[in-house]
Amino acid sequence: MPTHTFKLNGKQISVEAEDNVRLLWVLRDLLGVTGPKYGCALEVCKSCTSHINGKAFNPCSVQVKDIEPADEVTTIEGLPATVGKDLHPMQEAWLKYDVAQCGYCQPGQIMAAVAKVKQARAEGRDITDADLDELRNICRCGTYSRIREAVKAGAEDMGA
């Protein structure tokens, strides 16, 4: 079985898996990293949203062979370390606004929100309602109002 190596939450790791296995299952079933959730494995619900090289992506729809040794994969578990704190400002905002209900979609929501804010910053602007409309992570509990408030607050605390 092929061995794949990449950086996961700050550590270089190796894992044996068939080439075509989607990264979500490599993370969850083989590596025991369960923060990214399974909701559809069709790149629709976005529950598994994580970061690759700082950008949001859905590991349910990426074969493990397409991950390069130099690629840095960050899941919700590794998010705080990217800012050298116990909690990322976006996670703090999520707590402040008591966003979660059942919580199933929230790791993906937070990862998507952080990437969306960074994307806006990279374009030299603050996050707008139009940006928030582009977030497509599904929350079946319907926490969207608080999600929007929290993303805006988290964006302020993320600094420039």
Binding site: T75, L87, A100, Q106, I110
Partner: peptide, 9 residues
């Protein structure tokens, strides 16, 4: 359970 939720735990 908010802290466990936002940290993926």
């Amino acid at each position: 359970d908010a802290h466990d939720i936002v940290t993926g735990r």
